[in-house]
Amino acid sequence: MMLGEVTIVLAVRAVSDLTVHDHLCFVYDRPAEARQSLLDYVVAGLARCERVHVYREPGAPGATIEKGLRAAGLPVSDLMASGMLLVGSAGETCLAGDDGDAARLVDVVATATRAALDEGLTGLRVYVETGFLLDQPDALAAWPGCELRFDLLAKQLPITAVCAYDVREWTPGNLALAEMVHTRRSRHHGALRMHAGRDGTLRLSGEVDWSAADQVYRLLVKTAWSRPTPVLDVSGVSFVDVSGARSIGTACEAIAGRHGPTRLRAAPPLLREIWDSATWSASFPSVRLED
């Protein structure tokens, strides 16, 4: 089996194995397999009495979802008429407001989930294709923050979410940034991650080293506006080096004007060692290391 085949098999498994509160970054490079994954995902949701929303892009795997569902024997028209299945445009839904703020999707999903629960359904299952962002610079820049809010929402409500990224269209840097703000990811490389806990606290976990330092800086700065609290739980940081620690400190200073000091909760001993040995407290006054 070729490496690419291994990757897509892992991705397909990742989609079909999802459960409520999962928020998957689904990276694909083969539309046929992605179409099959989407089909399985939608069918599994309907079988669990979840309302299913598919936000798609022209030419992307979701474009043929109705056809695939009919071929599988599902009454697509009835499902859509009853509201169990909604298929809409990702770009139009996310950017419908005058301000082009993609965070609108978070509000749409929150409202739809509550409505589904009111109607006796078990929750909402969402699939979003993300290609529309690539020619929307402002929305693209704000996207990690949207994903983070989405992550928090998926923790708080019975939502299962898949955000689909075509690896052939996304730049590696933006893709890596997007992957970090999902609780699950289809590609099994790298371990750096930032996601929301159920109490709204953000958790940074994995190896914050030289390779990840730039991503960590960009992630902390780009998502600052969407964070519900100034607390960043770093208990899951398994390793940090000087570059990684510096990126955290520099990012916290960059956002301090709007965000105030950042409290690094459960700072691991190595982070403290760097901070204390290099006497960085004075250089990074907007960082508070906490137990």
Binding site: D241, G249, E273, I274, S277, A278, T279, S283, F284
Partner: peptide, 19 residues
Amino acid sequence: RPPENPRSAGVGLWLANQL
């Protein structure tokens, strides 16, 4: 020499010597 600030060169070597 202790590093003057986080951006100055030599923080890594200083720490390596410390540890």
